[in-house]
Simulated assay, not measured.
Amino acid sequence: MAFLVDAWQFVVGTLLPFLVVLTLIVFVHEMGHYLVGRWSGIGVTAFSIGFGPELAGFNDRHGTRWKLCAIPLGGYVKFFGDEDVSSSSTDQSALDALTPAERARTFPGAALWKRAATVAAGPIANFILAIAIFAVLFSLYGRRVADPVVSEVRAGSAAEEAGIRTGDRLLAIDGVPVATFDDVRRYVSVRPEMRIVVTVERGAEKLDFPMTPKRTELTDQFGNKMELGVIGVVTDEAAGRFRTVTYGPLEAVGEGARQSWHIVTGTFDYISNLIAGRMKADQLGGPIRVAQASGQMATLGVAALLQLAAMLSVSIGLLNLMPVPVLDGGHLVFYAIEAVRGKPVGPNAQEIAYRIGIALVLSLMVFATWNDISMLFSRT
Results as ranks from 00 to 15, higher is better:
E193D: 14
I196H: 07
N273S: 13
L207W: 02
G203N: 09
E201Q: 15
T267N: 03
P192H: 04
G248W: 00
L207N: 09
G223P: 01
D236N: 15
M211S: 06
P210R: 10
G266E: 02
L218N: 04
W261M: 07
P213E: 10
V253F: 12
A281I: 04
M211I: 05
I275M: 08
E251R: 13
Y270W: 11
K225I: 05
M194A: 08
M226N: 07
P213C: 12
V253S: 02
E193L: 13
L218M: 09
T265W: 02
P192W: 02
G203R: 05
Q259C: 03
T235W: 12
G203L: 05
W261S: 02
L207M: 14
N224K: 10
L218Y: 01
E237P: 10
N224Y: 08
N273E: 08
F209L: 13
E201A: 15
Y247M: 05
K225M: 06
G256N: 09
L228M: 14
K206M: 13
N224A: 09
A204E: 15
V233T: 13
N273L: 11
P213V: 05
M226D: 07
R258N: 12
L274G: 04
T265N: 03
R215A: 15
V245N: 02
V234C: 03
F222L: 01
E193V: 08
K225R: 15
F209V: 09
A239C: 12
M279G: 00
L284E: 05
V197Q: 08
R241Q: 15
E205K: 12
G256I: 06
T219M: 05
I271V: 15
I231F: 11
G232C: 09
A252D: 08
R278L: 09
Q283S: 09
P192T: 09
V264N: 07
E205G: 00
G223E: 03
M226V: 13
E205P: 00
L284G: 04
T246M: 14
A276T: 11
V234E: 14
G286A: 12
L218K: 11
G240W: 13
S260N: 07
H262S: 06
E201M: 06
E217M: 13
I231P: 01
V197R: 10
D269H: 12
A281Q: 00
F242W: 14
V264L: 07
G203A: 03
A257Y: 10
P192L: 09
L228F: 11
V245F: 01
Q259P: 02
A238L: 14
T212W: 01
V233K: 05
T199E: 14
L284A: 12
G254Q: 04
